[in-house]
Every structure is written in structure tokens, then in C-alpha cells.
Amino acid sequence: MQQLSLFEVVNTLPVEYCPGFLSSTEADAILAHCKNLQWQQNEIRMLGKPLQVPRLECMYGKPGASYLYSNSVTLDAHPWTYELISLRDRITAFCSHKFDIVIGNRYRNGQDSIGWHSDDEPSMGYRPAITSISLGACRKFSIKPKVKGSKATHFWLEHGSLLLMLPGCQEGYVHQLPKVDNCFLERINLTFRPYGRLK
């Protein structure tokens, strides 16, 4: 796999990466708050068979928002917490993109993961910008173009970092968080997204 420095990644891919977006103290506080969110273990259907999603999930945000992925898993929005809406507003001030929901993924150890995919569900509207906040264990993030034979670029998402996937990223690229050996700490990922916007 192709491996680039963070500077090169930002300049060759439709993403922007900001390590240390949250201070260590701020990131620790948000991580502690997120551990008490309403996590759920979902099932996804693969080849007609039910399988447990290899991570825990939750969604907060816009009243009535419902998010369907893979035609088999539905997440319904819980009301914003003070901490999550404050973080959302801080991210919007930083990157100038507005967000209506946040989806949480809780990776309990290195064996929890998410495979190659794009976040291109119609409920997010046209060419969405998505911001990811990483909390806890540092995990590898991989991204590659939707072109057969393309090489993947990967780098490590640090505690308190922000990764912005710019408009057009979901249409042209896929990404994943693969399994890793010898990781016994958990990671919580918060992805702030638009919902129900045409533009």
C-alpha cells in the first residue's frame, strides 16, 4: 500500500487533517462523555445472513432524523447532548460546513473495524462534507479512489484529531478502518454530517 506523509495526503486527496484539533484535556473529557452515550449493537445482512456489526453505533442530532445504510441497518437520532452540540458548533466555526447529525462508532479493540465504503447515503444530500473526530486509541485510516486497481493511502488518526472529508470525497473515494493486531484500547469516532439537504 502507498503510504504518504500527512502533508502529502492533504495535498493529493480531498481531505484535510488537523491533529490536535482538541487538546489532550478536551479530548479526554469528550471521550469520557461519549462512553455514556446510548450505544447499540446492530445486525447487518450479508448475502442474506444476519451478522453482528463489528463495532457499537449510535446517532444524535436533528429531531426525527433516521439514517439507513447497507439497506439493513437503521439509526434513529437521539437528542443532542450539550457536549456534542458544543463540539458541532466548534467544528462548524473551524471548517465552515454545517452539520445536522453525528454518528458514533465505538471500536472496542483492534478487532472492531469497518470495511471499504463511501458515506454516500441519499439522506445526507448532494456532495456532503463529513467531519470525523477521533478519540482514544490511535487507529489506521485508509482511503483510495473508486478506480479498479487504485492504491490506498493510509495514515494514523490520533486522539483529539479532526479529519474533514471534503465535498466530492464520498463520490470519488472509499475508505476503511481495518482491523489491527495488538490493540487492546478502544477508539470512539464521531462523524458529523449534514442531513436532508439538497445542496
Results as ranks from 00 to 15, higher is better:
A27Q: 10
A27M: 09
C34P: 01
K35F: 10
N36Q: 14
N36R: 13
L37K: 02
Q38W: 00
W39C: 08
Q41P: 04
N42Y: 02
M46N: 03
G48T: 09
G48W: 01
V53P: 04
V53S: 02
V53L: 14
R55P: 03
R55S: 03
E57T: 12
Y60L: 14
K62R: 15
K62P: 00
K62A: 04
K62L: 15
G64D: 05
G64R: 11
A65L: 05
A65T: 02
L68W: 13
Y69K: 13
V73T: 14
E83F: 05
S86C: 14
S86Y: 01
L87S: 03
R90W: 06
I91P: 02
I91R: 11
I91S: 05
C95H: 11
H97R: 09
I101N: 03
V102Y: 06
G104P: 00
R106Y: 15
R106V: 00
Y107P: 07
N109V: 09
Q111V: 02
D112A: 10
I114D: 05
G115T: 05
G115K: 07
W116Y: 05
H117T: 07
S118V: 11
P122E: 07
P122L: 06
S123R: 03
S123D: 09
R127Y: 03
I130T: 01
T131I: 15
G136R: 08
G136E: 03
G136D: 02
C138L: 10
R139V: 10
F141N: 01
S142E: 12
I143C: 06
K144M: 11
P145I: 00
P145A: 08
V147A: 13
G149Y: 07
T153W: 06
W156K: 13
L157N: 10
S161M: 10
L162N: 04
L162A: 15
L164Y: 03
L164S: 10
L164R: 11
M165D: 04
L166M: 14
G168A: 05
Q170M: 10
E171M: 09
